[in-house]
């Protein structure tokens, strides 16, 4: 008598299935389910109160949601472009350095070593209207004698957050683009010089196509980062004052944990995920196109 045996492939894959189900699949399904309920953290029994697509309809019709969504897209667009340009400039400069380049590369990575929470606190202090460095500097230089409300005025607060975001993450671009610059072969650059290119033309026509894949990788990584931006904003302005700097995830976080409307928060979360997925798909398409340009397959 032999007991019926499970097929080997199934047994071998089972541990992976169990772990994935426990940590990813079940929470994912649960949150998806809860977005169709009126689930409130303070009233656990509401988890079973099915309300259909009500939460989604509410989110889609909410001006707060869309303004936070729009602000997130705006922050993403501006931060990514500026970080890319600054990072490219930084990488090109460091690439020219022959002596002490290792040290510079290490220093360049310092901002990446700090917790975003600490970066938030630091910039909250720098932009403080009374004791902050920026206002002190501007006043000492005689450029202004008023205390500029950096973190209170809606547009200034957005710029302050942008500065903090860029300070902490420009080096991601710089490091990845520098890696790209290291991989650019010397021959085509020299051929371009002989073919009559000025340094700018060599960069534009030869170097840039070589580093585009690296730029798109950095953009893909950073677009996910910024799309889930939470910590710096939470510390610097807490989305305020009066929702002037509200981003998607500060809004969702407040809805879920402060207002305890977890079902509604999950519904907004699922809509927002599409933002991140859309950007990722976009940049990966671009990445593959850039790689195909270079004959790298893809």
């Amino acid at each position: 008598m032999t007991r019926p045996r499970l097929p080997a492939w199934f047994v071998l894959l089972l541990p992976a299935f169990i772990v994935l189900a426990a940590v990813v699949l079940i929470p994912l399904l649960l949150s998806l389910y809860s977005s169709f309920t009126s689930y409130r953290l303070t009233r656990p029994e509401t988890l079973y109160n099915w309300i259909g697509t009500f939460n989604y309809e509410k989110a889609v019709q909410s001006a707060h949601f869309w303004s936070a969504f729009g602000r997130t897209v705006l922050l993403l667009t501006i931060a990514l472009n500026l970080e890319m340009l600054l990072g490219l400039g930084l990488a090109l400069l460091v690439n020219q350095v022959t002596y002490g380049q290792r040290l510079l590369r290490t220093i360049m990575m310092f901002p990446m070593m700090f917790s975003p929470l600490l970066v938030g606190f630091q910039f909250k202090f720098i932009f403080n209207d009374n004791v902050g460095l920026v206002n002190n500097a501007l006043q000492s230089l005689g450029l202004t004698n008023v205390a500029i409300p950096w973190l209170v005025d809606g547009q200034l607060a957005f710029i302050s957050i942008l500065v903090a975001e860029m300070w902490s993450s420009t080096s991601v671009f710089a490091i990845l683009i520098l890696a790209g610059l290291f991989a650019v072969p010397r021959d085509p650059i020299e051929a371009a010089k002989v073919d009559g290119c000025t340094p700018w033309q060599s960069f534009r026509h030869i170097t840039l196509p070589y580093i585009m894949p690296f730029i798109y990788i950095a953009l893909a990584i950073r677009s996910l980062d910024v799309a889930r931006a939470y910590d710096i904003v939470q510390i610097m302005t807490n989305g305020g004052p009066a929702r002037r700097t509200e981003l998607i995830w500060t809004l969702i976080g407040r809805t879920g944990y402060v207002d305890a409307k977890m079902g509604y928060a999950n519904a907004m979360g699922y809509i927002s995920i599409f933002l991140a997925i859309a950007f990722t798909i976009y940049f990966f398409r671009k990445l593959n196109a850039a790689r195909a340009e270079l004959g790298m397959g893809g």
Binding site: P185, D187, A192, P209, Y210, G295
Partner: peptide, 11 residues
């Protein structure tokens, strides 16, 4: 100039 590795522009 003609280079040993051709140095063509791959893109």
């Amino acid at each position: 100039m003609v280079f040993q590795n051709y140095a063509l522009y791959p893109h």
